[in-house]
Amino acid sequence: MVDSAYGPLSPFAAMPASAGTGEGVVAGEREGLGIARITARNRQLAALEQLVHKRLHLALPAGPRRMRSGDLAAAGVGPECWLMTCESAGNAFAAGLRDSIGGHAAVVDLSDAYVMLRLAGARVREALAKLVPVDLHERSFQVDDVAQTVAEHMAVTLWRLEDTGRGEAAFELSVGRSFAQSLYRAVHDSAAEFGFVFETR
């Protein structure tokens, strides 16, 4: 039974949707993702890799990289530890993963633990440079590179997407849900001089 009144709410609904002039940085919320943290059980790494490859057709990356396969992706976030995402799957994703690979890995549902912003635009790197102490130069931080770092005292996870159709860089930036409004404010202020637009569907 799914009650329509029992629904998720975006923490960004009341935030200013734009700043400055132009579209140097365009943001949007990634909603509905299924997110699960998987950690290999002791001495089960090889078995887990094989199983994930067999059942999910995904090669688990060894370092801070992201591997994608269809709607699925796995981002390395620590030794023998990944953040897996699945489009539109919500909380059901982790439950399914637990059934599928739970023998070899601890699977923890984090679909609600993060809010994720997609950031793109001609000036997105300049705006992010005000937030994260990580080198995002295209040679240093390539498509599907992953960084866990800090932005204004908030733990954030960042990965690079394929450039947009207009050849502009694009990233996904996530933070603990309780920090959503603080992160939004920080992104908004950093991007304002380049023109900031938050797109809602």
């Binding site: 002791n42 601890a106 984090l110 633990a113």
Partner: peptide, 12 residues
């Protein structure tokens, strides 16, 4: 050597 996996789920 212990088989233990930890995850913070405060935000979840």
């Amino acid at each position: 050597q212990l088989d233990v996996q930890l995850a913070s789920v405060t935000e979840q």
